[in-house]
Write a protein that binds this DNA or RNA. Structure first.
Lengths: 231, 231
DNA sequence: GCCACTTAGTGTACGCATAACACTAAGCAT
DNA sequence: ATGCTTAGTGTTATGCGTACACTAAGTGGC
């Protein structure tokens, strides 16, 4: 079967930049390409958009197909569309890139269709990426760094219950600068949507910290009232 | 001549939301469609991306072809890519939308290819738009409202030399709220990139105001030094 | 020439948010 | 019991945003 059009069409793909956090570092989910071009190179998960398929759906589908990662209700946002001729050696391919935030420990990844491997790579120590994926990743990092300051998106990277130290460490990682401990705690709690669960950590070889959670309903309420956060 | 592919491909288009300011209102550039579908309806200028054509180039080309507007060195930025099936009644069409800012008095527009007419419409009083263009326009307005607060993009809507009252009126229009005159002037001048030309208005039936200009080189310098504006 | 009209242009005081800064508390391991 | 490690806490100074009302300068009409 084949499809014929009166004018030539660029191909349309989606690519996903999935950021994840484990105990130490901020990481990104990459696949090792099983086919040409760039066979054996690491790349962002992604692939062709089907006809009559929504582009966001395509991003989720490719992610699940290639890495086993299901993002049914997690943070996924459109990043930018890259359409410079030459970015794919085969032909003119336009790619709509997305970025997602997940807590690594809540998900397991495994290579599937079109991927020889799927793995989390620390941002500090990345392999050479296929296509223009290094550029896409760079744009995603800039966007994340900018957006985390005025939207509470960072919580998607943490487990449901977290300590204020974990939260502070997250912000320091994303903003790439140190943050004052007392001022940070004061401000976060003053925002009103980071709430104490009443529980504390267990099995830690030190004084256990209180556990907090992100109250999304409360955040939406504040947002409706016109409040603005700024970290 | 025709083109055949192994898998069906969505079509790829670009659409442009061009904002313009005249003496009174914020306006948007629309074309009246000359062909089906939606013949006779008003729509955003746009059209199909050619193979091996950069998507930004395609946006500029379509704009010039349909409205005569040349945007060689003016503010044009990618907005969002819309790819929900059904947004075009013919087939699955994915559209990469862009937005631009121009000073209406510096440009003339005239209908050309595929357009029966091209005209500036005030945002307050828009016709029903073709396709999902009302939605695209809404997203563009949100983006503009958000971005103008931390980037000096509004100057692209003004003539090269402008009064502080014009600038204030612009911000009030974009932000959709009133602004205190003394505080606004104090802050704008303190930013350091709005500079006095030394001249004043002529031919106005009242006290003439000083004329200022946006010093882009100075802005870039401040940006490099890590300063942040916030209006 | 004078008066009325219109928009330009200017300064201060108060309150709040940010930023800087160091010690005690609690639990675990040895 | 002691030492180690991270949790947790308050005050002060400064800068920034906000609120607010009158005088200045030019034009046009009478």
């Amino acid at each position: 079967m084949s499809f014929t059009y009166r004018y030539a069409r660029p191909a349309l793909t989606v690519d996903a930049v999935v950021f994840g956090l484990d105990d130490e570092d901020l990481k990104v989910l990459l696949i090792e390409r099983a086919g040409e071009p760039f066979r054996g190179a690491w790349a962002l998960p992604g692939g062709f958009v089907n006809v009559d398929e929504d582009i966001e759906t395509a991003a989720r589908r490719e992610l699940e197909e290639e890495t086993g990662l299901r993002l049914a209700d997690l943070y996924l946002e459109q990043l930018y569309t890259f359409g410079t001729p030459g970015r794919d050696p085969r032909e003119h391919v336009v790619s709509c890139a997305w970025y997602a935030l997940v807590n690594i420990r809540d998900h397991t990844v495994q290579a599937a269709t079109d991927a020889a491997a799927a793995a989390w790579w620390p941002l500090k120590d990345l392999p050479t990426l296929a296509f223009d994926h290094a550029r896409i990743l760079e744009v995603a990092r800039e966007r994340l760094r900018g957006k985390v300051r005025y939207r509470p998106i960072g919580f998607a990277l943490l487990p449901e219950r977290f300590t204020l130290s974990q939260l502070q460490h997250l912000y320091e990682t994303l903003l790439e600068r140190p943050v004052d401990k007392r001022n940070f705690r004061k401000k976060m709690l003053a925002l009103g949507f980071v709430v104490d669960t009443g529980d504390t950590e267990t099995d830690v070889p030190r004084r256990p910290a209180r556990l907090y959670r992100f109250d999304e309903a409360r955040y939406r309420e504040l947002e409706r009232e016109g409040f603005e956060m700024w970290v």
